[in-house]
Computed example of a mutant assay.
Amino acid sequence: MNSAYYRKLIYKQLNGTINREEQEILDHWYELYETETPYLSPGQIKSIKVRQRIFFNRYLKKKVTSDMSFLWKYAAVIGLLFTVSFLLFQIKYQQKPILNSLEEIDWQEIITVNKIRKRIILPDKSTVYLQGNSSLKFAANFQTNRTVHLKGQAFFDIVPHVASPFVVMADGVAVTVLGTSFTVNAKKEAFTTVAILTGKVSVNDSHSSHYLIPKEKISIDHLKGTFTKDLIDIDKEFAWTKGEIIFDHTPIKLAIDELVEWYDIEQVEWQMDPHQYACTVTGKYQYNSLVEILESISYAISLEYKIDHKKLIISAMDCS
């Protein structure tokens, strides 16, 4: 057996992991030169034992010291981790929580896909009509926190609750009400509109605050920091909440854009002279198909069109 094997046995002996058979082999190695080499002189035997001791000091003691150093370092790291963990525990369970932290709120979110509208009854019995391609998010504790976050467009019919105002957050605009019905449209980037059907609301953004009453509408341009207030036609403004599409001398391009919002059309191709865009259309439709509406428009302005999968091609019209 070579010296590496005996080094291993010595190391196991010091660690207390050596078995009986290995211990006997090691003892035999210690006594080898005294019991099995009688022809050696006492001086030679002493020299061999010295070399054994040197071997022990050089290989084993050095390794044990190194291992102990590693163990001390390991213990220091464990102690540091324990200290940090204890401090984090103290911070987590003894420090007062930050009130209204967004991470601590359990949110519920309702999302509509493109062209699909949804009627929602909130926990306080308020009603929301959510337009297609929009989302509404509110807290699970809605009864005590009547704040909703809107992306897109929605109509709200709010149940009065004096002690808990209803707040709609949309693209940096806060609309606060006690009990009223209104629409918020934040579909267009950096542009928000609020229109009132009943009641009174306050509209606030980073630049200004406004109050609206029935038949009023405010349009806020976030990039320019400007706003405009107008009177509205209630029937037209809120028609979509009843499944109605109303055109009142509406330019044909705007009318087609409105139809794209309602129906499964992804692209419009105009194959006609731009001067014909001046044609206008008038009509009221409720739960009609796209073809039914286009046929109705065709009778009025001789519209020629074709639907190719999800593409609407308009080739001619005559509004003379």
Results as ranks from 00 to 15, higher is better:
143 Q>A: 13
138 F>V: 00
98 I>D: 05
271 Q>P: 10
61 K>H: 10
138 F>T: 00
59 Y>D: 04
189 E>A: 03
223 L>E: 09
284 K>F: 04
162 V>G: 10
193 T>M: 08
203 V>M: 01
160 P>A: 15
97 P>G: 06
177 V>H: 01
220 I>Q: 01
81 L>E: 00
291 V>T: 15
121 I>C: 11
153 Q>D: 09
301 I>N: 03
114 N>Y: 09
308 D>T: 12
67 D>A: 06
283 G>R: 01
38 P>Q: 08
229 K>R: 14
100 N>P: 04
24 E>M: 03
97 P>V: 09
132 G>V: 06
191 F>S: 05
91 I>A: 03
99 L>Y: 13
44 Q>G: 04
206 S>G: 04
221 D>C: 11
13 Q>A: 05
79 G>S: 06
320 S>T: 08
297 I>P: 02
140 A>W: 01
217 K>M: 11
304 E>D: 15
207 H>W: 06
266 E>C: 02
207 H>C: 09
212 L>H: 02
314 I>K: 02
269 E>N: 10
165 P>M: 12
171 D>H: 07
291 V>K: 12
281 V>M: 05
309 H>M: 12
184 V>H: 02
316 A>N: 06
151 K>I: 14
251 P>Y: 01
274 P>F: 03
169 M>G: 00
212 L>I: 07
22 E>N: 06
157 D>T: 13
207 H>G: 05
305 Y>D: 07
243 G>V: 09
162 V>M: 12
6 Y>M: 15
154 A>S: 14
225 G>N: 00
215 K>H: 07
246 I>Y: 07
38 P>T: 07
50 V>A: 09
77 V>S: 07
177 V>Y: 02
47 S>L: 14
89 F>A: 11
109 E>S: 07
45 I>Y: 06
124 D>A: 15
104 E>M: 02
283 G>T: 11
85 S>I: 11
53 R>N: 10
86 F>V: 05
15 N>C: 08
170 A>T: 02
312 L>E: 07
124 D>S: 14
134 S>H: 11
149 H>G: 02
295 E>D: 15
98 I>P: 03
295 E>V: 14
249 H>I: 08
26 L>D: 07
23 Q>P: 01
99 L>W: 14
275 H>K: 11
176 T>E: 06
35 T>K: 13
96 K>M: 10
64 V>N: 05
263 Y>P: 08
310 K>E: 11
177 V>M: 10
119 R>S: 13
237 E>C: 12
146 R>W: 04
